[in-house]
């Protein structure tokens, strides 16, 4: 790890909410509690994570994990931020006020996974038609029109 300095800083400030911390050469993987996303995001931007790459989600059946990817060009560090959402409560704060790019990405996650971002300026479906029902990238999504594939190895 090239820059232990701000790792220490983050750890000091957010030690309580960080559930898991891993770091490889120049990649950090942080898992956090979803409630503290917004303050942490603000802090991260302040220490140099200005570049917002994407946010996406992975459906692990009983919970959905949001994955944010941020980069700091100044320190040449990349960060993957993970927030765990239980299926019963798919709500999290929007970060589009901090990184403008999050706007569309969050809309995409809402569209395909049904995660609701609070305080999002314009939370609409983005890829699918407005009148689509269901969120197709969820593992429990069923569609009658989908053709079943043969299991072939």
């Amino acid at each position: 790890m090239k820059n232990p300095q701000f790792i220490k800083e983050i750890k000091k400030k957010f030690g309580k909410v960080i559930l898991d911390f891993k770091s490889y050469n120049d990649e950090i993987i942080l898992t956090i509690d979803k409630t503290s996303l917004l303050p942490l995001a603000k802090e991260l931007k302040k220490i140099g994570f200005e570049y917002f790459s994407f946010v996406t989600a992975v459906d692990y059946q009983e919970r959905i994990i949001l994955v944010y990817r941020l980069s700091s060009f100044k320190d040449k560090v990349n960060l993957i931020l993970k927030a765990i959402l239980p299926l019963s409560d798919l709500k999290i704060d929007s970060v589009s006020s901090i990184w403008g790019g999050a706007n569309w990405h969050e809309r995409e996650v809402f569209d395909l996974f049904g995660v609701v971002f609070d305080h999002h300026p314009d939370l609409r479906r983005i890829l699918l038609p407005e009148n689509w029902s269901g969120h197709p990238l969820r593992k429990d999504y069923r569609d009658e029109d989908v053709v079943k594939r043969k299991e072939y190895f």
């Binding site: 790459s53 994407f54 996406t56 992975v58 459906d59 994955v67 990817r69 790019g101 569309w104 990405h105 995409e108 990238l137 190895f153």
Partner: peptide, 23 residues
């Protein structure tokens, strides 16, 4: 970039395409 989650099976569990043109 491709963000791929594998569960050890022959098919990707999740594949996210981070497409530059989208951003």
């Amino acid at each position: 970039g491709f963000y791929i989650v594998s569960d050890g099976s022959a098919r990707p569990y999740r594949m996210k395409v981070r497409s530059p043109a989208f951003s």
